[in-house]
Design a protein around this nucleic acid. Structure first.
Lengths: 165, 165
DNA sequence: CGTGAAAGGACGGATGT
DNA sequence: ACATCCGTCCTTTCACG
């Protein structure tokens, strides 16, 4: 793995160039974030210390930013999931960030181009809870709310085939 | 942790009722999916075998569905991220699932209520790549594409406070 | 960058309260 | 439901190619 060093681009000497083995490790750890280094080594035909160093390097390069348990909110009393698009007036954006984006129901918040400049994914215990959230968001701009029926793809792994091949 | 057994609801005897310790474990593993059972035990003042059994139970109950490394696509040559909303004609939905939802650029696909019945989060190497994707999606319905500028919240941890408190 | 060996730690099953 | 014990496996460091 090597940085594409455009001679001293200061703090952002990126992207990074993983080799075939790095891509395999990235793929394996996206599938099972708790896989041991010994097992990773078996999968890529390297010793445990070798993969350990590769993974540490990927972490320090900011390619792997962390490891997370994936949780099913429906089994935790949070059956309602929705995407709320908000057309926030630009003067209200700082307050929107401070008062809406930070609410615990918000599991994803994206600032995007286009009319609806914010896209919030929220999880709630009830439609009443969702109603309260949307009313709060309404104070900062027009909203459009879509209930999530199902999510056939969720956090699909990023793979080598997407960048070349 | 106990199931809210509505007497024999067959495969979906859910949701589950985690106790305080379970919630702590869920929180810790969402923050660091590779935390060892010994360390988890230290954090919740239990022995390693005790937390191991709790975590196994949470996994088998479908509360924790997996563990994933979180990857920064921008550092892997995929700097373009967008959300594409698609108003798919209902007769075309099966083909849309087979030919668009499965494309590797799609990292999230949600079937939602409202006019734009599909919401796709895609990552691409270039705007040209995105253009190609959107053209493919266009074949199944009208699309609205928003470039993601930034994502102040990404996969925020689900916590106890959201379900009661 | 890679391997192999050795020490310390974590894991997983059995057992007892 | 939890703690302790213990054998095995994993992690980490280091000397070396």
């Amino acid at each position: 793995m090597r940085k594409s060093s455009r001679h001293g681009d200061p703090a952002y000497d990126f992207p990074v160039e993983p080799d075939e083995v790095d891509w395999k490790l990235i793929g394996l750890l996206q599938e099972d974030g708790r896989m041991t280094f010994v097992e990773l080594g078996r999968r890529v035909s390297l010793s445990a210390p070798a993969v350990t160093e590769r993974v540490r390097r990927l972490e320090q390069a900011g390619v792997i930013t962390g490891y997370r348990a994936v949780v099913d909110q429906r089994r935790l009393g949070l059956p309602i999931e929705a995407v709320v698009r908000v057309k926030v007036r630009s003067l209200d954006t700082p307050r929107f960030r401070e008062r809406v984006v930070v609410l615990p129901q918000v599991v994803d918040a994206d600032h995007v181009s286009g009319e609806d400049c914010w896209l919030l994914r929220v999880v709630c215990r009830s439609t009443g809870d969702l109603e309260g959230f949307v009313e709060e968001a309404q104070r900062y701009g027009d909203t459009t709310t879509s209930l999530v029926f199902s999510s056939p793809v969720r956090n699909r792994a990023v793979g080598r085939g997407m960048v070349e091949g």
